[in-house]
């Protein structure tokens, strides 16, 4: 693993943003004093007049973005996931989601792998917050290349979106096919016993866990649900019919994220798979390295394998 070149989703985001800004004059980026960390600052490589540092004022950034979107701009607002969704939630609700403003809310350094900064800085409920707002598209890319594809694809979604980005390094491991398409889950492996459904960089561990399980004789499917909303309901239904058990894996609270979205579909089926949700239980994060925290919550390869083997 370590021999492979790794990148972070936020790096892919920066690449995508530069490409978009070159191609479209209406693309604007705003940040709250974290432009270098979130990579939003990279838009200045194209045009320094299209970057707005709003200072440490997330609510003001969202309101300003909503006003600018009214003027026909496609506005990417950036901060850490925990701040941009939490501090400015009401602005997102009233000024972005309700009037369908063309604002892309980009939550960087999201999840447990934000790491050593601890609970105040780790967004583990951001997907839950954004998913519950009407008109929102919610995308969680699994690697840097997918983040680049996602930011470019979101330009064509004329309306509100939440893009959850990570600083957890992985290789670009998601295959070229099936191609990334918003709203369409990617079936990466087909099995027959159990299906692992995840999102974000933790998918890297999911694929490694699938390898281990295959060797142990468990036929394991793997599906990347990079779009939490609109959820690919058809794929969920077909997986629930095909497999006996589905396991959701996400670097997010098990309340309100991908696992909950899958549960909402599966609960409505007359028969089908049962669901095990892996993620952060109803708790805050804490300091530690990203790898250590993933291991603590059973989201590393070993933890996923163990949870699957424990299934009766």
């Amino acid at each position: 693993m370590s021999a492979l070149k790794t990148r972070e989703a936020r790096d892919g985001y920066g690449e995508g943003l530069v490409k978009l800004a070159k191609a479209h004059k209406d693309v604007i980026a705003m940040d709250c004093d974290l432009g270098r960390s979130t990579r939003s600052f990279r838009i200045t490589e194209v045009d320094k007049n299209r970057f707005f540092d709003m200072g440490i004022a997330e609510q003001d950034m969202l309101s300003t973005a909503a006003g600018m979107a009214k003027m026909g701009k496609t506005v990417f607002v950036n901060s850490f996931g925990v701040f941009v969704t939490g501090r400015a939630f009401d602005q997102i609700r009233q000024q972005v989601s309700l009037p369908k403003a063309n604002v892309k809310v980009c939550g960087s350094s999201s999840g447990l792998t934000q790491g050593a900064d601890g609970a105040t800085h780790q967004s583990v409920v951001d997907v839950a917050l954004m998913r519950n707002l009407p008109n929102m598209t919610v995308v969680v890319p699994a690697d840097a290349k997918q983040a680049e594809e996602a930011v470019i694809a979101l330009y064509d979604v004329k309306g509100p979106a939440y893009l959850r980005l990570s600083k957890h390094p992985t290789p670009d491991y998601i295959p070229e096919t099936p191609a990334f398409k918003i709203g369409k889950a990617q079936v990466l492996r087909t099995g027959s016993d159990i299906c692992l459904c995840g999102c974000g960089p933790v998918m890297y561990n999911v694929l490694a866990a699938a390898d281990v399980l295959e060797k142990a004789g468990i036929k394991t499917g793997v599906v990347n649900f990079h779009t939490i909303k609109p959820l690919d309901v058809e794929t969920v239904k077909s997986l629930a019919g095909k497999y006996k058990r589905i396991v959701s894996i996400e670097e997010h609270s098990i309340l309100g994220g991908l696992g909950s979205a899958l549960a909402e579909v599966i609960a409505g089926l007359e028969k089908g798979a049962t669901l095990l949700r892996l993620g952060v239980p109803d708790t805050f994060g804490e300091s530690g390295s990203g790898e250590e925290l993933l291991a603590k919550y059973g989201l590393d390869t070993d933890g996923i394998v163990k949870s699957v083997k424990n299934l009766k």
Binding site: F52, Q59, D60, S63, T64, A65, M71, K73
Partner: peptide, 12 residues
């Protein structure tokens, strides 16, 4: 929230 949006429109 309105003044922030007004700023955004004025900037746009």
């Amino acid at each position: 929230q309105g003044l922030g949006a007004a700023n955004g429109a004025a900037l746009g």
